[in-house]
Design a protein around this nucleic acid. Structure first.
Lengths: 262, 262
DNA sequence: TCTTGTGAAAGTGTTCACAGCT
DNA sequence: AGCTGTGAACACTTTCACAAGA
């Protein structure tokens, strides 16, 4: 268990469930769209549809924030936008640094959604001296050497890592040492951070693999295809090198080990 | 989320829990690293540390796949790599199309992690005629007009949407009509799709907002301070009661890192 | 001995269904 | 009548702790 880290006793506080927090931005986006169309009120049913969730879940989510609706009527759009924004901390300005200005970092720097809701790209940082001073999305790239100073001067508490995997941990360590307490990690690696620092990750490759899993299931679905008895199959015992394996197997491989043998 | 309702025949078991599926790519990555270092076996404890989860969870996850370990010893690295790859459907080739070759789409096209595990960028598609024929990451961009033909000719079942939000739904509809059954959506909008089509989304802005929420909590120990006093934008009809009583929070909240199913 | 595999307990999240307010 | 807010039921996930097996 590596670090002590005895998990939290779950301070039963007045905390909002994590799953709810993860959906608030979704609601906010839907509400913002309604607001722009000057829609004054919305029912849980309508809003849920716009956000792609079901209405009971939405009502339950909102109930953690307080009683912001009006029975028989619905929710006041402007009012909810404000309450959710406040709950998410979007009524304040969040300076963000992006470290690693490759293709992805550059794309992130130029991403509109970034600037929109209270987030401001305070600096772009890259280790390549050739990049230093070069403007990307209108912001001049600064060198990694100045990372600590940049963080401190700008009061940055949120960092985005878009570096190659190999240097992500050390970049992370420096960010944390300099005072960053929230990290959005695009590098395909596990970051370890001290308690009190939040890390969220976005990994393309993982998302695709999850899709592939389901895709594969779909293809093999119609055919019940009994793995049939008799097989106990697969070296239930000693695994052996499967590296090269005869490949071959590509098809609807009917023998998902699945489920408990015994 | 797409596949809400009519789900599996519910014929007991055989199903791997979604939370487990979402972690398999993580294990696979850690195992691949071990494999490259020619490590022959690994214990649940070691592997769990490398993947950033706890060992009980990992063992439980693996138990859904079958009994691939050896008690008193651990897991054979190569063997596990093979089994997980097969389970995820990575032993086959998945042609993928990316639609919307702006900054982000171009970055995705060049992203190494894409090509690595069985995923092959079969085509890049963009609506801008000026882009047509231009090579991005070595692949010539094709025009949206040919979308259906491209999907069919390449047997594509996974599509990546990196277009502006405004056109994402129509691109999605065309992909689905042409035969795509899994979509990775980078556009900040909710896509609606027929049953049987999976959608996963990656949304920068949402991730940042979730971080901001926790960040705010960390800082909030002193004054909840409502600057809202003169807000003015709030509708007079707004429900009352709002802000009286938050604060309170004291839980140091040392939360979990990473991972969040969609 | 050591480590896996797994029932059972605990914790989280979702859905139901209806009481209560407008 | 209509719609929110919520207890209670259900479903899923994580963690515990130990028996089984190498």
């Amino acid at each position: 268990m590596a670090t002590g880290r005895t998990h939290r006793p779950a301070t039963r506080s007045r905390g909002i469930p994590e799953a709810t927090v993860a959906r608030l931005p979704l609601y906010l986006r839907a509400l913002t769209a309604l607001s722009e169309r000057s829609v004054p009120t919305v029912s849980s049913e309508e809003l849920a549809a716009a956000a792609g969730v079901n209405s009971a879940k939405l009502r339950k989510d909102f109930s953690y924030l307080g009683s912001y609706g009006t029975r028989g009527v619905g929710y006041d759009v402007e009012y909810l936008v404000y309450q959710i924004s406040r709950e998410l901390g979007l009524t304040q300005d969040w300076p963000v640094v992006i470290v690693g200005i490759g293709n992805l970092g550059a794309a992130l720097a130029g991403y509109g959604g970034f600037a929109s809701r209270g987030f401001r790209v305070a600096a772009l940082i890259d280790a390549d001296p050739a990049m230093t001073g070069k403007p990307v999305a209108g912001i001049p790239v600064q060198h990694t050497d100045d990372l600590e100073k940049i963080i401190k001067d700008n009061g940055v508490s949120i960092g985005v890592i878009a570096t190659p995997a190999g240097v992500a941990q050390q970049v992370c360590d420096r960010l944390v040492a300099a005072g960053v307490t929230s990290i959005l990690n695009f590098a395909p690696t596990v970051l370890s951070v001290p308690d009190g620092v939040d890390v969220r990750k976005v990994d393309l490759s993982i998302e695709l693999q999850i899709l592939a899993f389901h895709e594969q299931r779909k293809a093999g679905e119609e055919t019940p295809l009994e793995t049939a008895a008799g097989d106990g199959a697969l070296p239930a015992t000693a695994p052996r090198g499967a590296t090269g394996e005869d490949s071959a197997d590509q098809g609807p491989d009917g023998d998902v080990p699945a489920v408990m043998p015994a």
